[in-house]
Amino acid sequence: MLKVENLSVSYGKIKAIDKINLEVNSGEIVVLIGANGAGKTTTLKAISGLVKCEVDSHIRLDLSMLTDKRTLNRFVGKKATDLLLKVYHSSEVAFEKINSNEDITKELFAKNSKLNQIKLKRIRKKYNYFVKADLLKVKAHRISSYGIAHVPEGRQVFANLTVQENLEMGAFKRHSRKKITEDLEKIYELFPRLKERKKQKAGTLSGGEQQMLAIARAMMSKPKIILLDEPSMGLAPIIVKEVFEIIKKLNESGITIVLVEQNAKLALSIADRGYVLETGKIILSGTGEELLNNENVKKAYLGS
């Protein structure tokens, strides 16, 4: 789904990440573990566009990331998407047709008028503007349109906005009022504590509640991938359990998860695959079980 190739990030003269390669497949839980300062947070920030990467780094998105209906909606607009789907019935086919250079004016608009040709050109232009194979060339605030949501380290909720407003901010890029309200209801069912505190300022919530809020806020954008940065940080063990239950639930509902964690044991226990980062380089990778049973991992991170 998402491939990180040759990623390097430097903070000034210090190389935080040195040419790492990662792969994230659809429906997985991929885990990044490593010591403090290994570069885990930086990796997530690189994907979500918050830090600048060096030349020669690439993050490539699969076609599956780009061809679903919601993405199409975000890139060419609702009207065009509805039209395309009416004609082609499937968003993948629609994507193909737009991506090609075929003259599909007649198929789309029935009449091959000059105006319709211009309309097609505009749709193509909008789409080409967004469809860049390399995510690193996209500005940070556009990344969420690709279906990538980032729950940053330390929660980072908007403290002076209410819980409800925080969630609304999560849905900033969406336009269907009806659907947003529906999703809000669903989120409140999933997080009853957030519903209780709907009108409270987010800064007054406890650490665990803020973490729930941050995750719920990310969910509001209906993402395909959620990047989670140290969700267990600073939370009581029982709350951590709750949070991880939610993460598992999210994954079961089809969302791909990229999880960065210091609590290696817990992370690897729910992981499909994992990578071990040390001082900016990937030193190990494998399935969750493999890493859990790996001697070096056990000694360094699992404490046994």
């Binding site: 918050l50 605030h141 990344i143 908007f158 002076n160 906005l161 901010m169 999560g170 900033f172 954008s221």
Partner: peptide, 24 residues
């Protein structure tokens, strides 16, 4: 309004706002 809230969000936490898709 949505944009008003987005302005408040940006002034509070610019990087989190970016993640929401708000153009700082």
């Amino acid at each position: 309004t949505k944009f008003g809230k987005a302005m408040r969000a940006t002034s509070e936490n610019p990087s989190a706002a970016k993640l929401m898709g708000i153009n700082n």
